[in-house]
């Protein structure tokens, strides 16, 4: 499907809204489904991104790795009960090449701890490449979450 023929902006808004809602509702199992089977998700910082550093705080190059992230979160990793509130800004379409588009969208994430402590946990931008999947849904081929700060408080349990 040629993306330029579709209302890409509206579809990006829908994709981002669904993504944020899945994480913030604790519906983590839905999170990998926003990605294509063969994908890249990376959580990094602006300094690392600017310096061309390849490693991330999280790094997954398949949807199954994203699923593993969630099963580890559910059954293996220990962390205090917490949740996020994502506020995702408006997507900017950077380029469209046939069935693939590049876009960027800013985010802020507030973390709410079990004792009620709310703190600004991360701000940044998602650098995305989206494509239409076989079932007609728009999904991420690539989502690089570039946090503005290089400092992460305590731990990053839930993906951003």
């Amino acid at each position: 499907m040629d993306l330029s023929a579709t209302d890409l902006n509206a579809r990006l808004i829908e994709l981002n809204a669904g993504y944020a809602r899945a994480i913030d509702d604790g519906n983590f199992e839905a999170w990998p489904e926003f990605f294509l089977e063969d994908c890249l998700y990376k959580l990094t910082s602006a300094d690392n991104h600017a310096a061309g550093m390849e490693a991330g705080v999280m790094y997954a190059d398949s949807r199954n790795m994203l699923r593993d992230r969630i099963s580890a979160l559910r059954v293996a990793n220990i962390y205090e009960r917490q949740r996020y509130r994502h506020i995702v800004g408006l997507p900017a379409v950077l380029s469209i090449e046939g069935a693939s588009a590049r876009s960027e969208v800013p985010f802020i994430v507030v973390r709410i701890m079990r004792d009620g402590t709310m703190a600004l946990f991360a701000t940044g931008r998602y650098l995305d490449r989206v494509e239409v999947d076989g079932d007609g849904a728009l999904r991420f081929r690539e989502r690089i979450a570039v946090c503005d700060s290089n400092r992460f408080d305590t731990l990053v349990a839930i993906p951003i």
Partner: peptide, 27 residues
């Protein structure tokens, strides 16, 4: 090897599969 290290970096750091707990247990 480069790719392997990028993947295995998931084990460590603030979101590390085997090290994230070390970030909170001191607290």
């Amino acid at each position: 090897m480069r790719k392997r290290r990028l993947k295995q970096a998931n084990l460590v750091g603030p979101a590390g599969f085997v090290s994230m707990e070390d970030g909170c247990v001191g607290g």
